[in-house]
Amino acid sequence: MSALLQILRRDLAMLLHGGRRGGTLLPVLFFLSVAMLYPFAVGPDGPLLARTGGGVIWVAALLAAILPLDRLVAPDVEQGFFDQWALRGISEEAVIAMRVLAHWLSFGPPLMLATVPAAALVGIDGAALRTVELGLLAGTPGLAAIGVTIAALTAGLRSGAALSGLLLIPLAVPLLVFGAGALSQMHSGAGQSGLALTAAFSLVLLAIAPFAGGAALRAARE
């Protein structure tokens, strides 16, 4: 158990700002720049922006989650970390579970913070902002789980970075449908069910990720 805590500590040091795996700054800046560009592209139409802004924030969050994928698992495979952990009886599943947690901590909460200025940029109101924030809280753990699983799957591939982006998008569609869907249901008072489904899908992904990622790493070793 203490070994896993050490691994989590290392993962966080790597992934958080100042670490050498890109940090949290790049995805957050990317996220904010999408929110900033959108009103320029659509024009100063307040009601239109307010109606579509929440969806754009969701798409931006999903795309921002792709950015750190190629550095999540591949460097540790190349440098032999996973082999050394396996020799010490630390399973790939446990390491992947820690990495999902670390990855979420490094991009979920910062993205939720950045959503506040992004909401102002696209001009959505307080109630919609609240639904977006709750949706991101429910959806980003699932995004982190998909991200780490894909990073483990593509760790040994030469063009893994481009491929992982393509793989993430279809898998993340259910999160987007339910999460962003909660926004349009909000006015009819059915927003809760969208959020609940987003959270449920996240939980399923979180349960699968360690086993899928661990199996992928072991298969790549053969």
Binding site: R10, M14, R20, E78, Q79, G80, F81, D83, Q84
Partner: peptide, 8 residues
């Protein structure tokens, strides 16, 4: 082996 498994 040839990979030291030390953070670069």
């Amino acid at each position: 082996d040839e990979r030291p498994a030390l953070d670069e």
